[in-house]
Design a binder for these strands. Sequence first.
DNA 1: TTAAACTTTGCAACAGTGTTGCACAAACTT
DNA 2: AAGTTTGTGCAACACTGTTGCAAAGTTTAA
Lengths: 137, 137
Amino acid sequence: MTNNEIEKKLALKNVKPTAMRTLVYKTLVNSGKALSLADLEMQFEKVERSTIYRALKSFEENFMVHPVDDGTGAVKYAVCDDDCTCNIHDLHVHFYCTRCGRTRCMKELPIPEMKLPAGYTYDKAQFIIQGVCPRCD
Amino acid sequence: MTNNEIEKKLALKNVKPTAMRTLVYKTLVNSGKALSLADLEMQFEKVERSTIYRALKSFEENFMVHPVDDGTGAVKYAVCDDDCTCNIHDLHVHFYCTRCGRTRCMKELPIPEMKLPAGYTYDKAQFIIQGVCPRCD
DNA sequence: TTAAACTTTGCAACAGTGTTGCACAAACTT
DNA sequence: AAGTTTGTGCAACACTGTTGCAAAGTTTAA
Ligand SMILES: [Mn+2]
Ligand SMILES: [Mn+2]
Ligand SMILES: [Zn+2]
Ligand SMILES: [Zn+2]
């Protein structure tokens, strides 16, 4: 994705496309996997943790990325589909590879509806499958 | 559960039943919900974080408790069934109530098998449903 | 029963993650 | 151009998880 496309997308989602935000979003979208704050921090040595942090937060608030907690201790962020509103229908399984540490969206696997016992209401869900990915097998 | 029963259970699982370990396990089992290191630390002011930490680790290694990462930032621990080996067949959904912060096992809801794309192997999974529990509704 | 060997606990320290206040810089308004 | 709003960098902090080490406690074996 080009800088220009990214800037357009940010604007579309009501996030002012600053240089930093463009950079962060581009890295995320081009990586093809979920990245943590620390992952991003490493990729561009000279940008401040808090700046990246705040960029991620505004992406999250505007449904551009969703958090994935794969159990490694740091929350990762994956880019949302264009039409995502991060509601129950956009939820999907995530896969965490224990060999390469890569975490990715499995949009082809929506999170199955569960019949909860009486009295429970369903708001959100996280479904993380841990195993080994094709690259590492 | 009485101290005596707990000591027996620890012994059965090859964990030497020291006073601290008995205390930690008892608290966990009697709470009826998953507790984090910090939760436990608060319940008995004068026991060291690292002692509780190590108790939890040995419980975990011996299939007496399983970790639940409900996304609140601290891993919680829930007691296993007696015959649990923490393998794929023991996995179940966990429910996190956003009102009371309580996290509990839903043993009645086993984690559904998912047909992964070719090349992926399935090792473990975490499925956390977030919502409001009957008490809080 | 005592000494040696092993295990558990407490203490202190540390790295990693997430988060915020504040001041300066940059961008936008009038 | 001056004033206002927004973004960034820096520093600090709280919390989680983890470990080395020494003291205390327990087990074993002479
Ligand atoms: Mn995803
Ligand atoms: Mn459970
Ligand atoms: Zn892999
Ligand atoms: Zn509740």
